Simulated scan of single mutants.
Amino acid sequence: MTTAQTYANFSAREARGVSPAYERLSLAVSGDDEVLALLDGLPPAKRQPNLLFGVVRLLGGPVEDPAAFHDYTLANWPRIEAQIRTRATQTNEAGRCAVLLPVLATLPQPLALLEVGASAGLCLYPDRYAYRYGDHLIGDGAPVLDCEATGVLPPLMVPEVVWRGGLDLNPLDVTDPADVAWLDALIWPEHAHRRARLRTAAAVAAADPPLLVRGDLVDDLPALVERAPAEATLVVFHTSVLYQLLPARRAAFTDLVRGLPGHWVSNEAPGVLPYDDLPEPPDDAHLNVLALDGRPLGWTRGHGQAVHWFG
């Protein structure tokens, strides 16, 4: 897929109906030869829309007006490029816990949670948040995570978590204002509710910081698994992480995680992991596949706002 096609696809399938600013901007970039030429000078993994747009937002540049974005990007490309080359998309959306909860609540309790691609670790606190599935409220924490659930009954309670650990190439610290600023920059422009949710979830994590380890999700995973308590059910999980890996590395991770004790929960775009049979998605929006131990269970929206269960 060319860079132009990547941006056009992002506009039509990910941003449409979710972020008018990014829908408009990514469509404009898909036809902007000057910006595309700059992007094509980067490694393929660094050309993605969320990374470019997040860096421009972090630097104070405009993302609402495509013409202003074009001018700013060309005028400030050395600064933008430097940030893109050193950063990664680390959207740490606590709302994704709402689509993980129907799986986590069914596993033998208590749980030892280990997230790969953990960013700042905000998804390691599903027991501390509250959830609203329609008019069904679960838990009494904050923030309250809203999720539309079809095909599955909402869980009756939050899970019991006795250990939480995360692995990331560049873990972020929720007590560091610069790291929180990057997480904020990755939130799409119109999503004020997600910014408020980030601040509340970050306060939860800062009050009881998780164990976050800098490392590779293949090479360093076994050592972190050894630190989890044996009396708890180990759950290795990830959301929108594996698409950033080359296929061979993805396969190595899959082979490794299948051999670990406990359970494996994945929430990745279709095509990232192999499945023998997937039903048709409920719509043409960009959806992830929620799976337990390699068995697909449902379609989910990227920020945790909906789960369509079929498992």
Rank of each mutant, 00 (worst) to 15 (best):
D71S: 14
G121V: 03
V63Q: 11
D40N: 05
V152T: 06
L39M: 01
A68F: 10
A201T: 08
A112E: 04
S11Y: 11
L42K: 04
H136P: 06
V241R: 11
R16M: 09
P210T: 01
Q5R: 15
L212S: 00
P66S: 13
N92L: 01
P66Y: 15
P281N: 02
F253A: 15
D184I: 05
D216L: 15
A68S: 14
P209Y: 07
I80F: 01
A228T: 04
E160N: 10
G17H: 02
D179L: 09
A306I: 01
A251P: 03
G60F: 14
M1H: 12
D216N: 11
T254C: 11
V174S: 03
D65L: 13
T3E: 14
I187A: 06
L100K: 03
A201R: 04
D284I: 05
V225E: 10
G215W: 06
V236P: 05
R16Q: 09
P296Y: 12
C97R: 00
A12H: 12
V180G: 12
R195W: 00
L217G: 02
I138S: 15
A15F: 03
E64S: 10
L278D: 02
P143Q: 08
A68C: 14
D255F: 01
A285Q: 09
M157R: 15
L122G: 07
A252G: 09
P229N: 07
H70G: 09
D219M: 08
P247N: 02
P296S: 12
V218F: 09
D293A: 00
T106P: 02
L242C: 01
N170V: 15
R96P: 00
A178C: 04
G141F: 01
G166K: 00
I80E: 04
R227W: 07
Y125W: 10
R249M: 14
D219Y: 09
C147H: 05
R57W: 03
D173N: 05
A178D: 12
Q109L: 11
D71W: 13
P159F: 10
R24Q: 08
V235W: 12
P222V: 03
D277I: 11
G60V: 08
D135H: 15
L211E: 09
S240T: 01
E226H: 12
A192G: 07
A12K: 11
V218Q: 14
